[in-house]
């Protein structure tokens, strides 16, 4: 019975594809269609169906590698996973409807037939979902590494003064990294004053403040002084409203003022050179 169905599907390939493309387009988002050009859409659809049909043949090894390639291609094209999976589902319906129309299956054997269809297409959708998921996982882990690299540089600007500019949200993991970099840096650069610049930190909540305070205390322990610079008006408001006590720290609104103060603390100042005539 299966062979009959398979040969039938192969024979009516073009009709099935056309019907399928129509239905998919109908269901798909307008935006989705406009992003993908007509040609790519058609081409990919044919490739998709070829692949599905290839699955019917027994030759498994070729199918597997082709399936992997195809999944990767779809992911690269940036098609949403819902679109692809619902497309696969629509294909099942199209084949089903077509077979019924052509009276290839009798009513009493429908259950058996549905099971066959399911066994046929389920691995395909599984593989596609798997490829999507692994691609996402890869992207997420790459981004995590990239973020860690950008996380917390300590810059020795002048002798005895170092600056750590913080950009972006601070979570517990990052706070730990910041603290380690800060302390190692203070010791290796022999800094006396460290400025933590929070201009680039969008929100300062109790947790962020807690981490910054901890870092400042640790800096005090290794024998340097810590200054908190780049406090924007809205951050000053949040800090006071949340009742966070930063009185023990020297704080300034901008890095420039902080730098001046830091120079003052190390008994230095910036002087302009007299003009040479």
């Amino acid at each position: 019975m299966y062979n009959e169905i398979i040969s039938h599907i192969k024979n009516r390939k073009t009709e099935i594809i056309e019907e399928w493309i129509d239905r998919v387009k109908e269901a798909a988002d307008e935006r989705m269609i406009s992003v993908v050009s007509e040609q790519v859409f058609q081409g990919t659809s044919y490739e998709f169906v070829d692949l599905i049909l290839l699955n019917l043949d027994e030759n498994n090894s070729e199918y597997k590698s082709k399936l992997e390639m195809f999944s990767e291609k779809i992911v690269r094209l940036g098609w949403p996973i819902t679109f692809v999976v619902s497309g696969l589902r629509t294909f099942t319906h199209v084949v089903h409807d077509d077979l019924i129309q052509e009276k290839k299956i009798s009513k009493d054997r429908e259950g058996e037939y549905l099971e066959f269809l399911d066994n046929w297409l389920a691995p395909l959708s599984n593989e596609i979902i798997h490829t999507y998921a692994s691609t996402w996982e890869k992207t997420v882990s790459l981004q995590k590494i990239a973020l860690q690299e950008l996380s917390a540089p300590l810059i020795p600007v002048v002798e005895h003064i170092s600056i750590m500019p913080l950009v972006g949200t601070i979570d517990t993991e990052r706070a730990k990294l910041i603290m380690e970099n800060l302390l190692e840096g203070v010791v290796s650069h022999r800094a006396e004053v460290v400025l933590i610049d929070i201009t680039g930190v969008p929100v300062v909540d109790t947790m962020v403040a807690h981490h910054v305070i901890q870092a400042a205390e640790a800096v005090h322990l290794v024998g340097a002084r810590c200054m908190l610079v780049g406090i924007r008006p809205e951050i000053a408001q949040t800090i006071v409203n949340l009742g966070i006590d930063l009185n023990k720290f020297i704080t300034t609104s901008t890095l420039r003022k902080g730098m001046e103060k830091a120079l003052e603390m190390t008994n230095r100042k910036i002087v302009e050179l007299e003009e040479v005539n």
Binding site: E180, E217, A218, K248
Partner: peptide
């Protein structure tokens, strides 16, 4: 003098301030 970074982190985490 000479508190190591690791020691400083431990102290802060233990809540010992030495303010």
């Amino acid at each position: 003098t000479g508190i190591q970074p690791a020691v400083a982190i431990t102290l802060v985490e233990l809540g010992i301030r030495l303010d």
